[in-house]
Design a protein around this nucleic acid. Structure first.
Length: 435
RNA sequence: GCGCCCAUCGUCUAGCGGUCUAGGACGUCGCCCUUUCACGGCGAAAACAGGGGUUCGAGUCCCCUUGGGCGCGCCA
């Protein structure tokens, strides 16, 4: 697989922008083999193609200034016509060129008839040529535009399928005019629907859309995101889960619908949770460690876990992962492990630790301290006996225990927590809260 | 404004003229499991945008309306 970076817009193609693309794709697991091709490095080739077009009289120099073009569009708009370039330089000679104006090169596009796109997803789409003006091939500074560059590169690189968002549909028509002027065969085209925001409004950077890197910080797994994304606008019967292998076998343009989908975080979370549970503990641990630096408060948590707490984390991971839909939730649900004593209790935990409960805990603590063996089952046995002796339900002692040990009212099974925390830490936390 | 495209539960979708009293998934709501929360299991509510045609028969074909989206740069 080959990666091509379309960097013909020099101002926007900053190193940061390019790194963000590379980084995002790599994280998502969308790999490429050879060195990326930077489109701008092929500018010389693009200019050569334009020379051909010029000498074949399929393109021409245009001396209209940006101000002139603005004016043109404004007037057209006010007269109810489409805002287009009017082709005023189409058939003029260079002798008429105003001095001091650097020209652009425009394609001499057909003015009548229509251009048809045979699209694998959209079907046959016909655009009147009157709605397509003479697009710019070379800017006045001599650099190629994207419109020209894609066509030349796709042709030179032997691209068989052009698959992209519908926002490129009319570009496809324009590009076909370039193919036609060059007498080149047109690759298979497929324009897939766009993804909308949860509110149905458009999803774009300008409207709060997230870059790939944001999904990493949100704690999603690349495999889960891929799975979620592939099911947006495409389906394969009733199947919901697809491994990379499955996708490769099952995916086809025939299954792609034409209507746009809304992005639904609830479903993404569900799928992510599914992947987390389905993963082996070792793989999940690995994914978690890799993601940690990017998660909110992750670096801080990493520092604390590095102080010998990883074994405890690992021990509780099977219980923890049942309760988390994202890596962020996983981190949050594990935070009691490395919280410093005395623990800060959340509101619900404080109310669980009423005086009555505190009294029970102070009675239980010495009994636990006397245990010769500290395992989940030995502790459980002891606590169950305690509950019976004091004629309380298990929950009446388990909940205060949970509150005292985790600072919360929700956690993995409490006896597993006791075991993971170990005797010393558990007893210390109990002492902190049994007042 | 002009051009193009879209329209099944709240959301993602199955459906390619009769098997649809419309299926699955997420979400929601019950119940079960249970030391909490999850997981898991069982169950429920929930949709063919509206109107005309075509046809023996329309969610499925055609037209209109309405509602959405995309495009109209010396951006990509």
């Amino acid at each position: 697989m080959l990666l091509r970076i379309e960097d013909t817009d020099r101002a926007r193609s900053t190193n940061e922008a390019i790194d963000a693309i590379l980084d995002g794709l790599a994280w998502l697991g969308l790999d490429w083999d050879e060195e990326p091709v930077f489109q701008f490095s092929r500018a010389e080739r693009h200019r050569l193609v334009v020379d051909e077009l010029l000498s074949a009289n399929r393109a021409y120099h245009c001396y209209s200034t940006p101000e002139e073009l603005d004016e043109m569009r404004r007037i057209a708009q006010s007269e109810g016509r489409p805002p287009r370039y009017d082709g005023r330089w189409r058939d003029r000679t260079p002798q008429e060129a105003p001095v001091g104006v650097k020209p652009v090169v425009r394609l001499k596009a057909p003015r009548e008839g229509e251009t048809a796109i045979n699209d694998a997803v959209q079907g046959r789409v016909v655009i009147p040529n009157a709605d397509l003006d003479d697009l710019v091939l070379l800017r006045s500074d001599g650099t190629p535009t994207y419109m020209l560059a894609v066509v030349v590169d796709d042709h030179d690189m032997g691209i068989t399928h052009v698959i992209r968002g519908v926002d490129h549909l009319t570009n496809a028509a324009r590009q076909m005019q370039i193919y036609a002027a060059l007498d080149w065969p047109v690759p298979e085209m497929a324009h897939i629907p766009l993804i909308h925001g949860p509110d149905g409004a458009k999803l774009s950077k300008r409207h709060g859309a997230l870059g790939v890197e944001a999904y990493r910080a949100l704690g999603y797994l690349p495999a889960a995101l891929r799975n979620y994304l592939v099911r947006l606008g495409w389906s394969h019967g009733d199947e919901e889960f697809f491994s990379t292998e499955d996708m490769i076998h099952a995916f086809g343009l025939q299954g792609v619908g034409k209507s746009p989908a809304r992005f639904d975080f609830a479903k993404l979370e569900n799928i992510n949770g599914h992947y987390m549970r389905a993963m082996s503990d070792a793989d999940l641990l690995d994914a978690f460690r890799k993601a940690l630096p990017y998660l909110p408060d992750g670096p801080d948590a990493m520092e604390r876990l590095d102080k010998g707490l990883w074994p405890i984390f690992e021990k509780l991971l099977p219980a923890l992962k049942e309760r988390a839909k994202t890596l962020v939730e996983l981190l949050d649900s594990a935070s009691f492990l490395f919280s410093e004593r005395p623990l800060k209790l959340d509101d619900k935990a404080s109310s669980v630790l009423a005086p009555e409960a505190q009294k029970l805990l102070s009675l239980l603590t010495p009994q636990l301290a006397a245990l010769s063996l500290w395992t989940a089952s030995s502790v459980e046995e002891s606590v169950r006996a305690f509950a019976q002796d004091h004629n309380v339900k298990l929950g009446q002692i388990a909940q205060p225990l949970r509150a005292a040990l985790t600072g919360r009212v929700v956690s993995p099974p409490i006896f597993d927590v006791l075991e993971a925390l170990d005797r010393e830490e558990s007893l210390a936390r109990l002492a902190d809260q049994s007042g």
